[in-house]
Design a protein around this nucleic acid. Structure first.
Lengths: 238, 238
DNA sequence: TTAAAAAACATGTATTTACAAGTAAAAATT
DNA sequence: AATTTTTACTTGTAAATACATGTTTTTTAA
């Protein structure tokens, strides 16, 4: 069959429209072509087109209105895992730099880990890394990542500096994030956290504990993230 | 206009299965009946059943696995204020009591409101209220709500004590929350906040600023929520 | 007994068809 | 000219059909 990848049509159209929206071809408030027009344009039938639009809607890129059409919705500029919206209007992903504090190493899991672990995960050990993320040279995230060491050869020797962890997992291991859960707290900065995030000890810090599911059943990504929200907020949609 | 509402089949099945899951008939890890079985059970065709399952999956109630089936997913056990899903389940807390601090009153909008407002919203004025929410008699949320005064007769005179604002809006005004956006910060407790939440001044507090969209285009709900996350975390899915 | 092959069954993708219901523009009427 | 009605176009709902692909169980063969 050659190098032809079998990506479903509805996924292709989803990606096309998503790029058109994020790329600015369609702007906020714009009306997307009607479902029937999209059918003609891309040679698909309406249920297929509707599946793409349905995904775009549930991901927050568009809103659908019966009788009117699909309207492009304002969307957050994504930065890595989180979305940040601050006083400055549009924060591009280019301004976010990543600094490795602890390179990926294989260690045993902590006994009192923040999420319950399966037998398999415990046995496999834990790939551990610490990163600092800076926006305009201001430290925003102090990020501790944990991954179970299952079927991820040579991951500890890869370069993480300018690529997100998720990008590497997707490109080299075909791992996609399917969803997850998180706990959010406001805590006082410890000595360690405050020095990393350029805060005074005891100042409020946002703490996220996340568990992410992947397309590989049994493989989860965990992270503990400390955010300096003095200047920027965490932004989210639902 | 008769009160008869034609609720679509896929939405009915969604509600049935959702209640079965939240009610404990299906527990975490359980396999739902297969799509074909559901077709027979409820007299629908597979596309209709699949639409229900697709909604349940995107709302985090189930996970679908090709070849296996639909598996019931762990539900948030903690306070799920972040997980407002399309139809009903907003804040799933049984022991959560509400205490009104400021009864609903009609006031002009603040000049430096946290979200940009439309002309219509500004002209209409603002229904303002403050509430305190307690979990096991511990104050957890200090909640300030803002609604534009458009087509909501007698709302300032309604009883809010034991019913959620969302419930009243749904039952009396047919208003449903379709989605929204939020900003999250960790801030030091002010004198006022700290006294409401039983904290010391300066202690970390979680601050959420939310804008919620409704099925009524142009009508938004806004809220500013201060959370005591000393003992509980905010829980969310994505 | 073990391992490979086949079958049965699950969800995924896609087409075709039909009608319902909401919205907006055009046409007809007053 | 202003209002009402009609029409055209939009998305929403739903059925029937077909085949693809992944998973599990059963059967068959070594």
């Amino acid at each position: 069959m050659g190098p032809v990848r079998n990506i479903p049509q509805h996924k292709k159209l989803y990606e096309i429209l998503r790029k058109h929206i994020t790329g600015g071809i369609y702007k906020e408030g714009d009306l997307l072509p009607s479902e029937n027009e999209l059918c003609q344009l891309y040679g698909m039938t309406r249920p297929t087109v509707r599946q793409s639009l349905s995904s775009l809607a549930s991901d927050g890129y568009i809103r659908k209105h019966q009788g009117k059409g699909s309207i492009v919705h304002q969307l957050p500029k994504e930065i890595g895992i989180l979305s940040v919206s601050g006083t400055t209007s549009a924060v591009g992903a280019r301004n976010l730099k990543t600094k490795i504090i602890v390179k990926p190493v294989l260690i045993p899991w902590e006994n009192d880990f923040m999420f319950p672990l399966s037998e398999l995960e415990r046995e496999s050990g834990c790939i551990y890394m610490e990163r600092l993320r800076l926006l305009d040279d201001i430290p925003i995230f102090y990020d501790i990542s944990y991954i179970a060491n299952v079927n991820l050869p040579r991951i500890t020797s890869r370069q993480f500096e300018n690529r997100s962890l998720f990008q590497i997992l997707r490109e080299h291991y075909q791992i996609e994030i399917k969803g997850g859960e998180q706990r959010i707290k406001a805590i006082p900065a410890s000595a360690k956290i405050s020095s990393f995030l350029h805060l005074k000890k005891g100042e409020p810090v946002l703490h996220l504990e996340r568990k992410m599911e992947t397309n590989n059943p049994g493989l989860f990504l965990y992270s503990s993230i400390f955010c300096n929200t003095e200047k920027y907020s965490i932004f989210g949609r639902f």
